[in-house]
Amino acid sequence: MITLISSLMVFLLVVMIHEFGHFSMAKLSGIQVNEFSIGMGPKILQKETDETKYSLRALPIGGYVAMEGEEEHSENPRSFNNASILKRMAVVLAGASMNFILGFLAFTLIFSIIGYPSNFVNEVIAGSPAEIAGIRSGDIILETSNQKVKDLHDLNQIIQNAKNNSIELKIKRDDEIINLKLTPEFSKENNRYLIGINTELKHSIFKSIQYGFTRTIDMIKVILQSLKMMFSGSFKMEYLSGPVGVVQVIGQESSKGFLNFLQILGLISINLGVFNLLPIPALDGGKFFFLLIEAIIGRPIDERIEQRITLIGISLLISLMIYVTIFNDIGRLFK
């Protein structure tokens, strides 16, 4: 039950913020919005204003913003098809942008709660390059190879750039400045170079924002790398998850506490943002691609051609979802 509730909360938050992006940008652009719906299928609640219907529907598997003139031609001067190309592009991209913002806020809140790793050494791992070089608990790392170190993020960047080449450390120990040299070691478990220290966690809203932004960018890069591997054939289809698998993961992570809930919320939101920007018909990226072609050739693509291509895109996406659900999600349940 907790798994289901957690999954519904994540899906609703991610979908709601995505659709709110389209909705708010359409309103700001002066485009008429006929309906703003969270969920699909039968209506549970609906409130109607002079222009827009606000709906909550039974199936929490999506949502939509129905704009005048989006699916078919309209003579209404405030219709989507009569808006400028830049306004239409902004509306299409606003959904994914809001997903990135939600992910950023989730990660920023995590760092605000747990703190960020500083340059104050809290623990030295036994047998690590740091211990061999003579680093001790309580040391403050000031510089690495003549580059100032303000926190562990700065140190890690220098370590990853150095790889297995030696680096010089300037350390403050009590009132003494000490110079040490060590060589990072590659950790297969962490898939990066390490020197073997843990640092004290500190709290700062500005640092939390910085770390939240960095984590968001890192997640986008990881997702894009996975997509690149998928199209190159080096990414195995068995690693993909459909709705059943996603619900299972959300439930497992959410049961571990609020921080894990925020973590999975950020990951799901950023995944949705990146996926929606792929140039696949029926997705926001596909719509943006059509608008880009229109901007280049100076006229819209034939409506019938666009509808046929979009239908093919929808069919392929549904087929992929069914395949992943049957052969991956359900298959894992019986292992």
Results as ranks from 00 to 15, higher is better:
I2S: 15
L4N: 05
S6H: 07
S6D: 11
S7T: 09
S7G: 09
Q32G: 09
S37D: 13
G39S: 03
M40L: 15
K47V: 08
E48Y: 03
E48Q: 13
T49W: 04
Y54E: 06
Y64L: 11
N76R: 04
F80E: 14
N81F: 05
A90H: 06
L93C: 13
A96S: 15
L105E: 04
F111Q: 08
S112P: 02
I114W: 03
G115P: 07
N119P: 09
V124D: 13
V124H: 09
A130C: 07
I140P: 05
T144Q: 14
Q147L: 14
L152D: 06
H153K: 06
D154F: 04
N156R: 05
K172H: 10
N191K: 08
I195W: 03
N198Y: 04
T199A: 12
Y211V: 00
T214R: 06
D218Y: 03
I223G: 10
G233C: 08
S234N: 14
K236S: 15
K236M: 11
G242L: 05
V244T: 03
V246K: 04
G257T: 05
L262S: 10
S269Q: 02
V274D: 11
D284Y: 02
I297E: 14
R299P: 15
E306Q: 14
E306A: 13
I309N: 11
I309C: 07
I322L: 14
Y323E: 06
V324C: 09
D329N: 05
G331N: 07
R332V: 02
